[in-house]
Nucleic acid binder design. Structure first.
Lengths: 331, 331
DNA sequence: CTGTTAGCGCGTTCAG
DNA sequence: CTGAACGCGCTAACAG
């Protein structure tokens, strides 16, 4: 499979390399006649320009890098789609990389992306420390951080209004008469987790509710683990009548734990999730949860990045709105 | 941000370009001494090789293309992760592209991937016709098809054992005493759909059960649409005591339809899904479904592709086993 | 063991 | 309006 090159097209069309280049890139200074002749030959030969040869001279590859913890997580898979959508619309392709929450893997992936010469990077929930991260980002012409901010760095960021989301969720529980509200807070080092915890604490405080430290329990964001954590929490704090959960998977674990302990949801214990993944409306009882614009995060991150690449002015931080979805688990 | 080049490293280390190249690519014919000296300079300068310059001469970019209909679908997001995992292990990066089931978009995406000079392509559920597809694939050095075969072409394929999976699912229903078994068959043009329908028909025939044409209803693979289709089907064919569904989302629709019609699952109507997506075990009643190795499809597709790229011998078709997961919806 | 010479396929000078 | 030369950053051939 010998690749067809511009020289082949030029020879076949009886023109010079330059003319072919001009015809392909829609530059002016070329007659309509020769332009269409060149295009005909391109078509006939099935010529495809070499993006990498072009990239070598233009210094632009038309590619973006997207780094997420785990693309099989519905949260990130929608973000990915949003990014890809924005990229496609502008003729860019995107490298998708999974870090599996492993900082070392994250380093490797970032390095490979610099070697691939991506025009920009979108980094989702990075595990690296500020110092390393900042250093790594310097290798990229442009970058956007999702769900994290980093001090003293040119990279912009986008995130959902997590603290506010937690606030309205907990306020809703309070309005429904709950005051003993526990929280299954997710991973302790999660940036979103901190914001959500913060929103929870603030809402309790604003309502004049004294929160017990034992009401808060960190847990890994998976169904089985959080089920165990929920059993623990509900056993040690039987006074709790409601649980606010880090995310929907944790909330599902909490529902399972409640059933396991013979407590009815929502009659004996109300449960609120976060993220509104597709699952949320389909489990029984359907989850009351905070809806997040996952796809939109990705899409806007993509557009922010493309704007940055093209040198347009950019705001440093975008915060996307959230919405409480009232369903059965906490009506 | 002036990029550091090999020339900078060479000058700084007091050696020639070639020596730097050799040191970086672990070629022999270079003393351990100078190698480490070069590496030190590389480290100090923060030099990163340009993959695209390298690709221009080696004709290999270390990238793969992955084309799926929709990465936010849990099926494909796991396939993606499998592909990326295999690629990462061998130092490759992967371009993820969504076609959104749009043939035109698929063409565009494939063309952009050829310009990016990917070393290989994995194409999932292509919408293009055999002729176009075959022509498009010729632009790629190597390719693997997921869930589709194409005649007279060098590209290998991988898929799950869909027909057999449908067979064991329906046989299970028959063993439990059902004979009036309907099928919500998914999109009519789906390759997997055809195989599953086929397995369903064969199982009925083998059991000597006469199937009524009206028992089969095609539907789009989404919860709301299939709920409507299921209401239709159950209303027009009240004799049905079991439903075999194209996939789990359709099965969830069928469960909702049953509830809507006041029929209990599984007492009045047994329901079996397909794919075993994460959701399946979490809905109520938990879905009996056919488990598919989604991640494994991706991973093995990736490894097949890499083997092909490296010229290793390859079998033309891999069929992955499936397994019936007995849960509540059809015990 | 190391350096020199030639391109890879394209776009960007500059001349015609 | 068109073409010839040069170079992007790197590696494959050869030399030394």
């Amino acid at each position: 499979m010998q690749r067809i090159t511009m020289a082949d097209v030029a020879r076949e069309a009886g023109v010079s390399l330059m003319t072919v280049s001009r015809a392909l890139n829609d530059k002016d200074g070329i007659s309509e006649d020769t332009r269409s002749r060149v295009h005909a030959v391109v078509e006939r030969l099935g010529y495809r320009p070499s993006g990498i040869a072009r990239g070598l001279v233009t210094k632009r590859t038309g590619t973006l890098g997207l780094v997420v913890p785990d693309n099989s997580n519905p949260y990130f898979s929608e973000v990915s789609r949003g990014v890809e959508h924005a990229a496609f619309a502008r003729g860019y392709n995107v490298f998708l990389c999974n870090t599996e929450e492993d900082p070392q893997r994250e380093s490797i992936v970032l390095q490979s992306l610099t070697e691939k010469q991506v025009d920009g990077l979108i980094l989702c929930s990075p595990r690296l420390l500020d110092g390393e991260l900042s250093k790594a980002l310097n290798y990229f012409p442009a970058s956007i951080l999702i769900n994290r901010v980093i001090e003293n760095h040119a990279s912009s960021a986008i995130r959902s209004d997590d603290d506010n989301g937690a606030g309205i969720a907990v306020q809703h529980l309070i309005k429904r008469g709950h005051s003993a509200i526990g929280m299954l807070a997710g991973p302790e080092r999660s940036f979103s987790g901190r914001l959500r915890l913060n929103g929870y604490l603030t809402a309790l405080k604003d309502a004049g509710i004294q929160h017990e430290p034992e009401w808060i329990q960190f847990c890994s964001p998976m169904v089985e683990d959080s089920q165990k954590a929920a059993v623990d929490l509900l056993t040690h704090c039987p006074e709790l009548t409601a649980l606010f959960c880090f995310n929907d998977l944790v909330a599902v674990g909490a529902i399972k734990a409640s059933m396991q302990l013979g407590r009815r949801v929502p009659e004996d214990i109300a449960i609120v999730g976060f993220d509104d993944i597709p699952l949320a409306s389909l489990v029984t009882p359907a989850l009351t949860t905070v809806h997040i614009l996952r796809y939109e995060i990705g899409r806007q991150a993509g557009e922010m990045l493309l704007a940055k690449i093209e040198g347009k002015p950019m705001q440093a931080l975008t915060v996307l709105p959230v919405e409480l979805m009232l369903r059965t688990s906490a009506p």
